[in-house]
Design a binder for these strands. Sequence first.
DNA 1: GTAACTGCAAAATATTTGCATCCTT
DNA 2: AAGGATGCAAATATTTTGCAGTTAC
Lengths: 139, 139
Amino acid sequence: MSEAVDVILRKNQLSVTGSRKKILELFIGSRGDALAHADIEKKAGEKFDRVTIYRTLQTFVDKGIIHSIPTEDNSVRYALCKHNCTNGHHHDNHVHFVCNCCERTVCIDEVTVPDVKLPKEFAPMYAQMVVTGVCKNCL
Amino acid sequence: MSEAVDVILRKNQLSVTGSRKKILELFIGSRGDALAHADIEKKAGEKFDRVTIYRTLQTFVDKGIIHSIPTEDNSVRYALCKHNCTNGHHHDNHVHFVCNCCERTVCIDEVTVPDVKLPKEFAPMYAQMVVTGVCKNCL
DNA sequence: GTAACTGCAAAATATTTGCATCCTT
DNA sequence: AAGGATGCAAATATTTTGCAGTTAC
């Protein structure tokens, strides 16, 4: 698995470094759960500089490895892109779910964002959907 | 119109003060365009303390007068609730549009968020949709 | 060896809190 | 008059930038 991480990084023309491997592993290990900057700092075990985490996250977003999730409370969270988005073009069109109770944020890969028709003064490129509710763990 | 503002405030059990009237007027005047904290500071004409703006916005959100808009870049923007949401319960189910070019964020009242079916481990309460694209002004 | 990445310090930005004063009711 | 709202100062949190040292290729 640690090798898979190397492959992903190289596939994206990124040099393989300790922080990138570790952070990417955290995303893979979180299985669809979105991670905030603070989660990464915590789970990485106090290893990396805050700045490195910021920069790594930005690099991953630019490369299309992870995407940020729009939430109403404007907490900044990221999750893995499933369909290898390339170079800043994200095509993840799955729905996100935010649990009102435990604040967990998950990608729901099985559900795609439905199409909507907009008034013609708006030329849509892509749509995102966030469903808020309560997850099984909190019921 | 300035009277309408008074009415809205009183209807929400808020005392009618200068900053609240002015900020509410800005939202009404923006006609669906979302406003960020900085927009308000600017448009209000340097009149109010930053802190007052933060507090006023929070109060309006709590009362259901405005709602925040979830965006991918996590910019914090607010827009008027149309269907008088009450006491922290927002029912705005319209789609939001974000222009990739001018960064304008608008509520599209004509279009409602479609329903989606989620796996049963998620109990949905409400859904939000943000469409990104280019608006007429930028084409 | 070179270009890219990291860590540290510090700057810039954003948000929150406490408290004294002022305004609305 | 009383409670709530505001402004100011300051604390806290978040993100960005510059630069020197280190690492990947």
